[in-house]
Lab assay of single mutants.
Amino acid sequence: MQRVNMIMAESPGLITICLLGYLLSAECTVFLDHENANKILNRPKRYNSGKLEEFVQGNLERECMEEKCSFEEAREVFENTERTTEFWKQYVDGDQCESNPCLNGGSCKDDINSYECWCPFGFEGKNCELDVTCNIKNGRCEQFCKNSADNKVVCSCTEGYRLAENQKSCEPAVPFPCGRVSVSQTSKLTRAETVFPDVDYVNSTEAETILDNITQSTQSFNDFTRVVGGEDAKPGQFPWQVVLNGKVDAFCGGSIVNEKWIVTAAHCVETGVKITVVAGEHNIEETEHTEQKRNVIRIIPHHNYNAAINKYNHDIALLELDEPLVLNSYVTPICIADKEYTNIFLKFGSGYVSGWGRVFHKGRSALVLQYLRVPLVDRATCLRSTKFTIYNNMFCAGFHEGGRDSCQGDSGGPHVTEVEGTSFLTGIISWGEECAMKGKYGIYTKVSRYVNWIKEKTKLT
């Protein structure tokens, strides 16, 4: 034993070699072989497995989906700052455009905790909710729209109204504003409101030439003092309507412009014939205590009207009353817009006519005020429907199939267009061939041609 100890002390290297040989010859039971080890760690190889990531292109799944990435790591994937920024906006807080917040056709661009709407022409605001041009839906104005110097929408209202708090709607500024039905039992019968379409306001006024200088022999019209197929109006439903009495009662109609003036057809009036105007009328054979009678003290036909040349060209006249009318729910003026808007309103496509005229061709006159909704007829169809001249200051309205029309005794009465609950004068009943005849239409004086003249002559002093 002493000898062994001496050998170990003198030859430590020998001992180490012996131990190493023993270990190498022993069977290893701690580690699995290569094949079995792979069965336990069965993990798919990654895209760049075996390579240094710093030297390969980034992978979106590896960089940002398996674990949260930084902007720089995302930049490695896209290799483009702009594309990385677009991805980053949604990656950080989701897609803010998912709810489609942009209105009126706006395009949404996502941002971090926010979004941006790219608005089409005519709109602005956070969600493109603000109209900035009158060309689109009248700028959301209830009545009139004008573009300011910086191309912003400025709404306005006709006389007797003021802008509401929203700067879009119009509200009454006087007790009985024009064009409004205020009798409670008839307010439910107000005709369907007309909503502004998209309009090209630059070209809204037709490029028409008034044929002022045409000389033409007097034409022989049949029954051209021209509501057939209409309905009984309720008291106060058309408070701007008046009836004219002269040699015979209810020979023509008219509309209240203001307390002192009536507008009617020029062919209705004769110099030297006494005319009485009755406002607030409903049943011409009954006294309903809503009527107001006034005498006409002055007749002003349009300066281009000449019955000797043509009885229905420039067929418009103004009547001055001896005493002002007292405005109330049964006696209310009709609204008159400017030339541009009167023309736009007419193009809405349908209007209402009213009167006490004959209820059928050569038949009896109506006792109760009649009204009828009539569609506008395109000019080409209008011209083809008659052998008589249709001037540019006239328009056609009615039904091709016949059966409904204005008729004798309705002449001078109103053709009105309702705009968001307020009625505007767009025409004056003038003439036609018979009444409600198939293929024939009622012919009306186009008020847009005469609004400046009306307003100039009827100013209240």
Rank of each mutant, 00 (worst) to 15 (best):
K457S: 11
D150R: 09
K152W: 05
Q370G: 08
V353S: 06
L19Y: 06
E456Q: 11
G398H: 03
D249P: 07
S354W: 03
H400P: 14
V243T: 10
K457M: 15
I17H: 03
K152A: 13
A436N: 12
A265P: 04
L19W: 08
D111L: 10
Q237A: 08
S411P: 09
G254R: 01
E340C: 03
I262T: 02
T276V: 08
V419D: 01
V4D: 08
G355E: 04
A173V: 12
G122C: 00
T422L: 04
F224N: 10
Q241E: 03
T81N: 13
A207L: 11
P235Y: 07
C69W: 03
T215P: 10
K152Q: 10
N59I: 05
Q237R: 05
V202R: 10
S107M: 07
G254P: 01
C28G: 11
N213S: 13
R358D: 10
N135Y: 06
I390S: 11
D111N: 08
V174L: 06
C170H: 01
G349D: 14
H303F: 08
E286I: 13
K51Q: 15
E281D: 13
G254I: 00
I275S: 03
T461N: 15
T287S: 14
T186R: 12
I256S: 01
D110A: 15
T426S: 02
S114T: 12
V257N: 00
F360C: 10
F399Q: 11
A265Y: 01
S70C: 05
E456N: 11
C155Y: 00
E193N: 11
E270R: 12
T290N: 12
K137Y: 06
D410N: 09
N113Q: 12
S49C: 04
N313E: 08
E231A: 12
M437D: 11
G272W: 07
A397F: 01
A37H: 12
E129D: 07
A9C: 15
T133G: 12
I256N: 00
L369W: 07
V181R: 15
D212S: 10
A308I: 07
T422I: 12
H34E: 07
G21W: 06
S365D: 11
C170E: 01
T422M: 03
V154S: 10
L367R: 15
K339V: 10
F55L: 15
K126Q: 11
H34M: 10
I112F: 14
T16K: 08
P175T: 09
E124L: 03
V202S: 13
V56A: 13
C97P: 01
V269W: 04
G439L: 03
K68M: 12
D405P: 13
G349P: 04
G236C: 03
D93W: 05
Q2M: 13
S329G: 12
D200K: 12
Q219Y: 06
A149Q: 11
V248H: 13
M6V: 11
Y391A: 13
N343R: 07
A26N: 03
I390G: 09
V242P: 00
S423H: 15
Q185L: 10
V195Q: 13
F251R: 09
I7C: 07
V277Y: 00
V269G: 04
G105I: 00
W261Y: 08
E73H: 09
C178M: 01
R379L: 12
E61W: 06
H361Y: 12
T215E: 05
L325V: 03
Q370I: 02
T461R: 08
C102L: 00
Q219V: 08
A207G: 13
